[in-house]
């Protein structure tokens, strides 16, 4: 069994996760990375995506993360995200509404549509839906 170290996921609203884990993988902006206890100090920005980690009992857990930053220290990983939620907390209907809204905005092509923002919203929505539907 792998050695345990600490994971903290904090958002401006609350600490989403604060527990001992065995391993974690997260979507770094330059590529997915995985960390175990004793990883060298490492700092990266994150993409929209999923964080997977094995908790102390060895269960696989999953989180949705909306970009942010990760700091990896030998005995602790801290993730700073503007929003993050556990898979069971994802609001599927809200995500589907957001997806429809973003798609509508992109297909309308009105002059004042902020394409980048609409695409980002669509991306987030699709990711949330995907994660929520994995069983």
């Amino acid at each position: 069994m792998a050695d345990k170290f600490f994971l903290e996921v904090v958002t401006p609203q609350k600490a989403v996760v604060s527990e001992a884990i065995q391993s974690i993988s997260a979507p770094g902006s330059e590529g997915e990375f995985c960390a175990l206890k004793g990883h060298t100090t490492f700092l990266t920005s994150l993409k929209i995506g999923s964080i997977r980690y094995k908790d102390a009992a060895g269960n696989e857990r999953m989180l949705f993360v909306n970009g942010g930053f990760a700091e990896v220290l030998p005995n602790k990983v801290t993730i700073l995200a503007e929003s993050a939620e556990r898979r069971k907390d994802i609001d599927l209907t809200r995500a589907k509404e957001a997806q429809a809204r973003a798609e509508r905005r992109l297909s309308d092509k009105a002059a004042d549509t902020d394409i980048v923002r609409a695409q980002a919203a669509l991306h987030r929505a699709i990711f949330r839906i995907k994660m929520a539907e994995i069983r």
């Binding site: 330059e30 100090t41 490492f42 700092l43 030998p74 005995n75």
Partner: peptide, 24 residues
């Protein structure tokens, strides 16, 4: 960076570069 016990750790490896991270 310092860990909880207060021991000094080597500087962060930054990905992308520290300037790019700072920009973000």
């Amino acid at each position: 960076p310092v860990d909880d016990a207060g021991t000094f750790l080597p500087e962060h490896i930054c990905e992308p570069s520290s300037d790019a991270l700072l920009g973000k």
